[in-house]
């Protein structure tokens, strides 16, 4: 099902599905960091693959990215992106104060990948239950580098199907009352070949 042919009802279906998954992921994150986590309204972006790094804030922007493949009945990728300061704050919440700035070593990498794993699992498990399908996250991969370099791995798969990427994106923030809130972006990038699995679930393609 080509991305461009989706109508508004189908796009709303995808957003709603993602929202449900995100609710579970946010609960898991909240329990890990001991703070409430607030979700923004999800939105769907369909753009050329070449524009994805810009859409993420700039191809040169430094960020921590955790990516996972979706395996099982539907395929695609999940990306969890954190700006540097947020990755650092997240690590402080998880591991205790970690110096003044973000340092990547075996321990911090492992902790962040674990966060990715837990969020992706919560998200996919919720979706899987709703759709009555098996959705499993792959082993997470982490990179702390420029946005373009962090995401091109995810774009390689997608580009074999065409020139477009669809991203269902939810921004989340830690305790908004604190001066330094953990901010992150969660992206679901479905593979166009299995998009029907998501669409057919909740009421099916209308119209």
């Amino acid at each position: 099902m080509p991305f461009r042919e989706l109508n508004n009802v189908q796009l709303d279906t995808l957003k709603e599905l993602s929202n449900i998954g995100m609710g579970h992921a946010a609960t898991a994150l909240s329990q890990m960091i001991g703070q409430p986590v607030y979700l923004r309204v999800p939105h769907v972006t369909i753009i050329e693959i070449s524009q994805v790094p810009e859409h993420l804030g700039g191809a040169e922007k430094l960020m921590v990215g955790i990516t996972l493949q979706i395996l099982g009945d539907a395929r695609g990728s999940i990306m969890l992106l954190f700006p540097e300061e947020s990755a650092h704050l997240l690590l402080c919440s998880l591991l205790g104060q970690q110096g003044e700035e973000l340092v990547m070593n075996e321990i911090t990498e492992s902790a962040l990948k674990e966060v990715g794993n837990i969020l992706a699992s919560a998200y996919l498990s919720a979706l899987g239950n709703l759709l009555n399908k098996s959705l499993i996250p792959s082993v997470p991969l982490l990179a702390y580098d420029m946005a373009g370099a962090v995401v091109d791995y995810v774009l390689i798969d997608l580009s074999q199907s065409g020139d477009l990427a669809m991203m269902i994106e939810t921004d989340f923030t830690g305790d908004a009352n604190q001066d330094f809130a953990i901010k992150g972006h969660f992206f679901l990038l479905p593979d166009p070949a299995t998009l029907d699995i998501f669409l057919n679930a909740v009421g099916g393609p209308h119209g």
Partner: peptide, 21 residues
Amino acid sequence: SIAQARIDQAPVVLKAYGLGS
């Protein structure tokens, strides 16, 4: 950007950002 190519002439500076693989 990704999957693009540009042709130009001096004195332009062509740039590609965030090359991973």
